Computed example of a mutant assay.
Amino acid sequence: MKILYVHFHDLPDEQFHARLLTLLAEYTPLVQALPPDAALADVSGSLRYFGTDAPALAERIRARTGGLYGIRTTVGVAANPMLARMVAADGPPSAVRSLPDDIDEVTAFLAGKPTPALHGVGPATARALSSYGLDSVGRISAAPLGTLQRILGVTAGRRLHEAARGLDPTPVVPSAPPRSMRVEHGFGHDELDRSRQRAALLTLTDRLGQQLRAESQAARALTLTVRHADRSTTTRTRTLREPTAHTPALTSLAYELHDRLALQRARVRVLGLRAEELIADELTSRQLLLDPDDERARRLETVADHARNRFGPAAARPAATAPHVA
């Protein structure tokens, strides 16, 4: 395969990203949007048609985005999405960088990289690995699979073992236009009590997370809409740290958005939450975290989802939810 990771710098607005995706689609139908400012493109089947190689095609794309729109673009060219991302980041912006398919060159490229350079490795995982002397991709690659699995667990250890060897089976999946999913709660009266508003938000994030997981979707962003007693509305949107359908992550961001609105004296009639820029859950790459509380919460979330599917929505709900917002 020949994969391009295309990073558009300093986009003025979201419409520009969509416009640049259309430009990429002129070179291959296999374009996966990575909002707000990047994309993956599989050009394996396009090279013969254009009569060129992948780095030259990438340079053509970079030149066109600059010439047509004045946008600086960095393109990484490699055999899979992970390597394309890494080689794109391996230097100053506004350039085309290519990593040959040769296994020796891939090994040499990865060997000196710090552990967090691997996509999906978070700070906690990097610290844990470093405590065992595994502070570079080269050292992780040399470690036995069993050692990594004892440190991180079976699945995460295997994933890291493959990544450290430059393996990434993730396909480039053409993106449908990002869609959204919305839930809302009406109070039926002017609600000034902040704690009741937050209880309603907890109910909403619980419902929203369940709906996302039921459809195997993850949200990249969350929007909070507040409708006031005078029928005016206030809206705030923020991008999540990583695409997720995990209720605690949605709740944390919803509370943060609520805090930023400073609604101490506001008379609130309706609270609405909208999960934005949805993508298939299988396309997400959750950070490898060594957080037993997080893993426990995810297991409980799965159990609660099964209970609701079998016995109905009331079978499981957040303990902190007040009865009047159930």
Rank of each mutant, 00 (worst) to 15 (best):
A275Q: 10
T203E: 15
G157S: 04
L278C: 08
E162N: 10
H161R: 09
G133C: 03
P12D: 07
R159M: 09
P248S: 03
V75S: 01
R194A: 15
R269M: 10
L204Q: 12
R238A: 15
G133S: 02
S175H: 05
T22A: 14
G166I: 03
A319F: 02
D101M: 08
A218C: 06
E191P: 13
R165H: 15
A163R: 04
L273P: 04
T74C: 03
T147R: 11
P323N: 14
L271Y: 04
A315R: 10
Q197P: 03
V31I: 10
L222V: 08
R267G: 12
G120A: 07
A297F: 02
Q287A: 12
L24M: 12
L212D: 06
E242Y: 14
Q211T: 06
G120V: 07
R317D: 02
L68I: 04
P144L: 08
R213M: 05
A54T: 04
G67V: 05
R310K: 14
D291K: 07
R48C: 01
T235C: 07
E277I: 05
R194N: 12
M82A: 12
L20A: 04
Q15A: 13
P323M: 04
A41K: 05
T65H: 03
L152E: 08
D102E: 15
A254C: 09
L57M: 11
S141L: 04
R127N: 07
D42R: 04
A176N: 09
P248I: 01
G45I: 01
Y132V: 03
R48Y: 05
A219Q: 00
A245N: 15
H7K: 10
L24I: 07
D104M: 06
I103E: 15
K113L: 14
G272K: 09
R194I: 15
A156P: 00
S175N: 07
V106L: 00
L21W: 13
M181P: 01
M86E: 00
V172W: 00
Q197N: 08
A262M: 12
T244I: 05
S141T: 12
D259C: 08
E242V: 12
H9Y: 12
P114L: 14
L224I: 04
A245D: 13
L145W: 00
S216V: 06
P12I: 08
A304P: 02
R159V: 12
S46H: 00
A280Y: 05
K2A: 14
L23P: 06
L202I: 15
M86C: 05
G312M: 06
L24H: 09
H161V: 10
E276Q: 09
A249D: 14
T321R: 15
R308M: 10
A326S: 10
D102C: 11
A79H: 01
R62E: 05
R227E: 11
P12R: 12
P36I: 07
A84S: 04
T52C: 10
P144A: 09
